[in-house]
Structure formats: C-alpha cells, structure tokens
C-alpha cells in the first residue's frame, strides 16, 4: 500500500506561524521512513495530520490513491503517541485499553514484554515505559497498514529502546506495515529507518 501526503499546509489558528508549508511525502508498505527536525517544527503535527487527527488547511492525505477520510471505522493508519499517559483512559484497566485495539495477537503482547499482571492495573500504576508498550501493542491491530511512531521511546533507557524497536521493526517487516518514525535522535533513525526525510521549513 502507499500512503501519501500531498502539498500539506497547516497552521494552528489564523495569526499563527505556518507550521507546514506545501509539504509532501510518500511512504510505501515495505519502507521505514524517518522524519527528522528540531523541536517545534511540526513533527507531531504532521503525524496528527497523517493519521487523520487534524485536517490540513490545504493538501490531502491519500491511502492507495483514496482519501484517508473515506476509510470509515478502523483507521488503517495508526499513530503511536509520544506521551502514553494521554492516550489511555485513566479510569479503565490496561486490559480494556488493549482490547480497544483490533484483535491484538498474544504474540505481540509477549513480544513487547507485557506481563499478565499489568493487564489488571490502572494506567497510573504503570511506568511510562510499561504504558508505552500497551500503546504500541494497541496500534498493531489486524487492520493496521501504516504505523506513525512519534518519539515513542524518548522516555526509555537504551536497552528498552532497542528491545521495543527491534520488535517493532521485525513486526512491520513481517506484516508489510509501512513505518514512519519521528525523532530528534539521528543515530536512532539511522539504525531504524530505510530512508530519512527532513521536515524543512
């Protein structure tokens, strides 16, 4: 499959800075594209637009030539957020958070090192890294075709980072899921991605 961002322009509110200006990018299923830019250059914003959370001012997001918003129900483009504590409901057990995903396989849960005991806890009873594993697992549902990883391991130690990334890379390769990784860290993107793209102003 092919995910394309065509001439995307975006800014928050009327009299604010132009965050994205006529930016285009395309990612294929077998690719792992890295996006690199300093803070405040719109990396997260771009991910949000690409996953359909924000509407661009102009330009369009196409998945296999069809507009992304025409895919109803489960969105084939899933974003993994930088802050896992914002994307799980603090009043639900982690089991419920995981069940929201699209039939998450046992293999994925094991591969990410999620322990059974964690399933019965509330988000506040887990560390950021433990919670992030759930978020990664949840995004890897059956119908997911593209994964947008927005600084997903910035809060983790190097060993855990490498565990999570090696699992994620193996998974997307096996299932032919396209990956777009966003990070400050050049070395990380260089080892994870097949291609790098700068998000220029």
């Amino acid at each position: 499959m092919l995910l394309e961002a065509k001439n995307i322009s975006f800014k928050y509110g009327k009299d604010t800075r132009q965050i994205l200006d006529n930016f285009s990018l395309s990612v294929e299923s077998h690719e792992r594209v890295g996006i690199i830019a300093p803070s405040g250059f719109g990396k997260t914003t771009f991910c949000k637009i690409l996953a359909g959370y924000e509407k661009p001012d102009s330009g369009e997001i196409l998945l296999d030539g069809k507009s992304l918003s025409s895919y109803k129900g489960y969105c084939p483009v899933q974003m993994i957020w930088q802050h896992p504590e914002q994307v799980v409901n603090p009043r639900l057990h982690m089991r419920a958070a995981l069940e929201e995903g699209d039939k998450i396989e046992e293999r994925i849960i094991r591969g990410l090192g999620i322990e059974d005991d964690w399933l019965n806890r509330y988000p506040t009873e887990l560390s950021g890294g433990e919670m992030q594993r759930f978020c990664i697992a949840r995004a890897l549902g059956k119908r997911t075709k593209f994964i947008l990883a927005d600084e997903i391991t910035t809060m983790l130690d190097l060993i855990t980072q490498s565990q999570l990334w090696s699992f994620l890379i193996k998974e997307v390769q096996e299932r032919e899921i396209g990956l777009l990784a966003v990070s400050h860290s050049m070395p990380l993107l260089q080892s994870v991605c097949t291609r790098l793209q700068e998000l220029d102003k």
């Binding site: 489960y74 969105c75 957020w81 914002q86 994307v87 409901n89 009043r91 929201e100 699209d102």
Partner: peptide, 26 residues
Amino acid sequence: EATYIKVAEKLGKSKFEIAWKHMVPH
C-alpha cells in the same frame, strides 16, 4: 477533547461505545 477519546475514534469505536466505555466511568 481528551486524546484517548480521539484515539478510540480512530480505532473504529462507535459514538455509543465511546460514550459508554470512556465517558460514563468519568
């Protein structure tokens, strides 16, 4: 406006499911 509600929408949950599972407990 909560992010987890928006994520649930992208995970294909219906409005009713979101109201029941995410809003009622709050």
